[in-house]
Nucleic acid binder design. Structure first.
Lengths: 191, 191, 191, 191
DNA sequence: AATGAATGAGCCTTCATTCAT
DNA sequence: AATGAATGAAGGCTCATTCAT
């Protein structure tokens, strides 16, 4: 029973289904039919709205990054000191919403795919740039320029490293200890 | 004209071809035909020697890890202080032989695949364990147990993070600055 | 705001769009969506007015043939001798309006399709019959019955042959030389 | 039960099956599965040997034209006068082997497709050139240059026209009357 | 009068895998 | 030891068509 204004609803449902499918499979190697099935529509509709598999995947990654960016924006708004900004960023990156098996799996899968897809690479680079500048917004008040840069890179690498290492473990991700590890790094670096 | 004793030669050629193929593609999503073609044999031969694609892939990962382990063993043998052991480990992980685009790509691809393949996950866990104990063999003499543990985990995460972040860059990997970053971390942590 | 009396307007727009689409594609293998898009309406409307793709195609061919018949009727009206009738027929068939790339493409495509579609075949046969009788209306005064028949068939085949051979050439169709060729044939046949 | 040296056998079977399929359908719009099924193999094999549908289609047209060229070569070899050469060409073009429903259907379908496919267009142009030069090899001894050219073009157009008009008829093609028509044209043109 | 929403069916293509030789 | 021959299964994508609004 066709209704009007379904487009945004379907788009969102398909993106959510894509994340779920990738989360289950641990790869981008999921079928359009699977995704569409999870969203409760035919695969043809997914093509109708997104044009093709690559586009759906790209839209999905874009969605994930947009959520992350929105969360970060909110968290930073209530941080009152540079040090608090840093903790806020970590909290967001390892929040219950982000540090979930599905999101982690999608994250990794997209990283791998980025080696082949220029648009995807661009997307991830933008995210990396945003993370870096967010980190610098806290670090540059606490460390000399050079050291701030190095530390920002270190934190970024640590975050990605902690994400990827999750792939080897089973059970629920342990955000607390991940955060603790990065905070420990920060403590060692800050005077 | 069939020759005798070709088996080890073919196996090695196929594994090298697999690494090359994965390196070019940036995924495990390479065909057996492509791999066999690169090795100069028919794809049927790859099946003959390895049984199937998964097995070939597993053998390839095993080979990469074995090389890494061998390199580490050699490097640690000539390290004379605990601190030197740590640097030796870093040097090996970011050596010209390991920190190459192909190996990096394979690494990532296998990490992702590990989410689906138990044998692969086991393999990577063994490597992670080995890295951890290698790091501890240096750290436990320099830091209290607890701190040594945390630092070892931090370094391991940093290494993986630096590997994964390579996927976003182009051009040759910059081993020197990767090492510098980890060494900087170490300096901050060690008294 | 729905308007009244839109039906004939839409039907005509859709038929014109069909000719244009076939002309561009060189096949009947055009999508209803493409056609509807060119006509500025939704594809559902095309179904509403024509019932289905085959019906739209048939209506289009019918339209082309009707135009041709109308042109022929006018041209023959002002022809005063049998010989003039023949030239008039040729002029119409190779007129700027008929001997256009789009029409030629449609023509061929429909001929091919006629092998599968009985209604289409009937349509083309009617056109063939009309052409034949038009030609006879000139020839029978100039040649004995038998010879007139043969000549009419020859001219008809020549016309179709000249149309089909256009498919291999590029650039604008050269009506003049086509007409010259048939006129040359006529001159040879007429005493 | 795999045998060696099957390649040429399969290629030929697939080309024959393609002609048959096109003949039955009256279009190039036949499926690879249908073709492969007729040839008694899986569709995957058709891809294996030909690379894709377009390539198989092209190979099929090439095959048809090669057969025609071979027949023409033989027929011309035993023609002893210029006039005999002309009749020989007609006999070949309307021989029982060429003027068959399947070949006619394929012919037309390829003509239509030529509007879209450059390689196909090139192929048909080569055939047209060959027919023209064959015709000129007879005509240039019988008519002044200019007239010979025109006549060659006329005959070529007549042949194609007679082929295309077959699409409207049913039952077996009537080669005799087709030849008679062209011969009549020739008689009128030759002194 | 007109369309957005939705889908079933089908096609091209790829690939891991098998097997007789 | 090595391969040519062959295929089943699956996936991305397209399109004519329907229907409630």
């Amino acid at each position: 029973m066709p209704k009007l204004g379904m487009e945004p609803v379907r788009r969102r449902a398909l993106i959510d289904a894509t994340i779920a499918a990738i989360g289950d499979a641990g790869t981008l190697d999921v079928t359009m039919s699977d995704i569409a099935g999870r969203a409760g529509v035919s695969s043809a509709l997914a093509f109708h709205y997104f044009g093709g598999k690559d586009d759906l995947l790209l839209a999905t990654m874009r969605h994930i990054l947009a959520e992350l960016a929105a969360d970060a924006r909110v968290a930073l708004k209530s941080a009152e000191t540079p040090r608090a900004r840093l903790s806020a960023i970590l909290d967001v990156n390892f929040s219950a919403k982000q540090f979930r098996p599905e999101i982690i799996a999608a994250w990794l899968a997209f990283y791998v795919e980025a080696q082949r897809s220029e648009p995807l690479r661009r997307l991830l680079r933008i995210y990396a740039g945003r993370l870096h500048s967010n980190l610098m917004s806290g670090l540059s008040a606490l460390l000399p320029r050079e050291q701030a840069q190095t530390t920002a890179e270190g934190i970024a690498a640590l975050i990605d490293g902690l994400y990827i290492r999750r792939a080897l473990k089973q059970g629920e991700p342990d955000a607390a200890s991940a955060i603790a590890l990065v905070e420990d790094y920060l403590s060692a670096k800050l005077p």
